[in-house]
Write a protein that binds this DNA or RNA. Sequence first.
DNA 1: CGGTCGGGTAAACGCTCGTTCAGGAGCTCT
DNA 2: AGAGCTCCTGAACGAGCGTTTACCCGACCG
Lengths: 218, 218
Amino acid sequence: MTKRKTLRSAVAAVIEREGRPPVEAIRSAAFRQFAERGYPVVTVRDIMKACGLTQGALYNHFRSKDELLHDIITSTQAELERICQQAVAEAGDDPSAKLAAFVRAYVMRHCRLRVEALVANREISWLDTSRVADIRRSRRAIRDVLVGVLVQGVEKGVFDPPKVDGHEDLKAIAMALLDQCTHVSMWYGPGGRLAEEQMAALYAEMALRTVGAKRPAG
Amino acid sequence: MTKRKTLRSAVAAVIEREGRPPVEAIRSAAFRQFAERGYPVVTVRDIMKACGLTQGALYNHFRSKDELLHDIITSTQAELERICQQAVAEAGDDPSAKLAAFVRAYVMRHCRLRVEALVANREISWLDTSRVADIRRSRRAIRDVLVGVLVQGVEKGVFDPPKVDGHEDLKAIAMALLDQCTHVSMWYGPGGRLAEEQMAALYAEMALRTVGAKRPAG
DNA sequence: CGGTCGGGTAAACGCTCGTTCAGGAGCTCT
DNA sequence: AGAGCTCCTGAACGAGCGTTTACCCGACCG
């Protein structure tokens, strides 16, 4: 009936132990190790040992160590881009609601998928230049979503952002907000005092204050 | 009279070309390259070629590549710690003035000494654990200066920071502010629209808004 | 003016890296 | 049952790393 003990190949052993096929196990082990120690010092042997295979087996699933990194970063980054756009799109017309939704989604994701976010943000530079361009484009897209919200808020008169010498620099403000939210993944841990939702709420509030959002009441 | 042409050794050649002794030239070349490409992928040969010497000469000045990194990071970090403490100390008694002074000094430094700040913030993890402890201690010290200012502001009733579920988490807010200010060094460049002083002013204003500082007028 | 010595050179060492490849084990299909 | 396919093993390869070493030059001192 059961096919438990009939599976005895190396790949079946991985599935039994990890509950998923080797490709997934490799991706996950790589994520963890890249996050903990950094791409250049994690060896192919390290990754494969962590999922109970030998070095050579990597090359049945990825063309190179570089492609492995590119693969896990792009999937994470694309998902993040999708989440941010969706959050803004679903938040209605109010710029404050859009900003809050954006920040909440962004922070939630960076708390919940800490490891993935950390790798995607810290390890791009090891990719070769053509691959790194992809990721930078996606980052710029996310930044532009945020800038769009800020512009709209200013035009509608519901944001009153800081000015330097009489002019706003919304791009700089957007960068500051993104830096703040992104690097939550560097220090937030499940041991912290605040839950993910509380972090998201705190950061949304800080963002609204930063841009000078006029409050519904008070 | 002049001793110009009498200096013809390799060390003298470095001084003539770089205007400083080899130790300094090595430190500076290492800074630049670590910032651009990251500690693990910059080789000893790279660094020494950049200042016109051969690999072996490094070991007349530093015990190892690791010690070189430790040396340049600790000096930068100690200076930053000093600057932050001094800024707060000289700002008088008003928490808002202290916060603004802290942020201004911190951001100014991260704009002006972009490269140094970038290395000190990004490359610690490659040091061995006993050395990394030093740096973390210094970072914590800086954070605690900021937390101190926030606590004082709240006690005096001049700050009204965001609350989650009725409680403030000043440490989280301090981390958010520091993340924001620190990562200026990742994207700020002399080509940007804002000068260093303008960046500092912008970030100080954002910080004051974030903590809900009551304004002197209005 | 010859000895001393700091600080350079260039070759070599041992090691580990990413990657390749010949060989083999187990699954599926007829 | 056996061919064929997928996928893993484990040894091997060449390159590049940080570091050590033997040697040497030029400046300084009595």
